[in-house]
Amino acid sequence: MKKRSHTLKKAFAAAFPYTIPIFAGFWFLGLTYGIYMNVSGFSFWYPLFMSMFIFAGSVEFLTVNMLLGAFHPLQVLAVTLMVNARHLFYGISMLDRYRAAGWKKIYLIFGMCDESFSINYTAEIPDDTDRGWFMFFVTMLNHFYWVFGATLGGICGSLIHFDTEGLDFVMTAMFVVIFLEQWMKEKRHTSAVVGIAASLLCLIFFGADNFMIPAMLAMLCVLTYLRRFLEKGEEAV
């Protein structure tokens, strides 16, 4: 029992510092979402349970308009798939990492948002730390931050009056920081360059509203083709 408790504490202590920047982004953006729900006429129960069980920020914002209009199940399904299609690629990337996670894999799959994926995929986990519990706590903490911010915004929305325009840029800035941190850790930047090039080309050809899925497909194809060369390069280093 003491050994298990020590394992959990060690994994939590290793995971928590990685999630501090996520807390800042999720708290502000979740607060904005809760206020938006309140202004739209919904009680705090809606952002509480929607953030808890949907846990997809973009979809949750879109769901506000869906709840206010006529319900079209197929349209909701199509929009959700388009907005969150990138998670298909996240899932493929995490197959090996989640394989030995045991029962925790169920929650890791459910709670895999952009930020949790970025940390769990790139973090340098200490050798004496349980990887499954590390990823579990990263996912759980990020989930908690979002639920906390959304619920607080729903409760305090009627009391707070300020212009929330521009708060969503917090998440963009956070991803830039994560990208730069990963860039500095890598000795070779082939994957990053492929990602940037594919995104820019797809942005030019498909436009800002439609480039995400083609860019993901292009990255998947190019990196799959280059996989053996990248692995040889890592072995050589």
Rank of each mutant, 00 (worst) to 15 (best):
residue 127 D to P: 03
residue 124 E to D: 10
residue 120 N to Y: 07
residue 113 C to E: 12
residue 134 F to K: 09
residue 131 R to K: 15
residue 121 Y to M: 11
residue 125 I to G: 13
residue 113 C to I: 10
residue 122 T to F: 11
residue 113 C to L: 06
residue 145 Y to K: 01
residue 123 A to G: 05
residue 137 F to H: 04
residue 121 Y to D: 12
residue 143 H to P: 00
residue 130 D to W: 09
residue 115 E to T: 00
residue 125 I to W: 07
residue 119 I to L: 04
residue 117 F to Q: 02
residue 137 F to T: 00
residue 142 N to D: 11
residue 122 T to W: 04
residue 144 F to D: 01
residue 134 F to E: 09
residue 128 D to N: 14
residue 133 W to S: 12
residue 142 N to G: 12
residue 134 F to H: 10
residue 131 R to C: 04
residue 111 G to N: 04
residue 113 C to K: 02
residue 144 F to A: 14
residue 128 D to G: 02
residue 143 H to M: 02
residue 121 Y to E: 08
residue 135 M to A: 15
residue 125 I to L: 08
residue 138 V to E: 02
residue 111 G to A: 14
residue 117 F to L: 13
residue 131 R to W: 03
residue 121 Y to F: 12
residue 109 I to A: 14
residue 146 W to E: 11
residue 110 F to G: 04
residue 111 G to C: 09
residue 124 E to F: 13
residue 141 L to G: 00
residue 117 F to S: 04
residue 144 F to G: 00
residue 109 I to R: 05
residue 129 T to C: 15
residue 112 M to S: 03
residue 121 Y to Q: 13
residue 144 F to M: 15
residue 114 D to T: 14
residue 117 F to G: 02
residue 111 G to P: 02
residue 139 T to L: 01
residue 136 F to C: 04
residue 138 V to D: 09
residue 144 F to H: 01
residue 139 T to N: 14
residue 130 D to L: 15
residue 117 F to N: 04
residue 116 S to I: 05
residue 146 W to P: 09
residue 131 R to E: 13
residue 125 I to Y: 09
residue 122 T to V: 08
residue 140 M to R: 01
residue 144 F to Q: 02
residue 117 F to I: 06
residue 135 M to V: 08
residue 115 E to L: 04
residue 146 W to R: 01
residue 129 T to I: 15
residue 127 D to Q: 09
residue 112 M to H: 07
residue 117 F to M: 06
residue 123 A to D: 04
residue 117 F to K: 05
residue 119 I to S: 12
residue 119 I to A: 09
residue 137 F to Q: 04
residue 130 D to P: 14
residue 129 T to R: 04
residue 113 C to R: 01
residue 139 T to P: 01
residue 137 F to R: 06
residue 126 P to N: 08
residue 123 A to H: 07
residue 146 W to D: 05
residue 110 F to Q: 05
residue 140 M to P: 00
residue 138 V to K: 00
residue 109 I to G: 06
residue 119 I to Q: 12
residue 146 W to V: 13
residue 110 F to C: 05
residue 138 V to H: 00
residue 132 G to F: 08
residue 110 F to N: 04
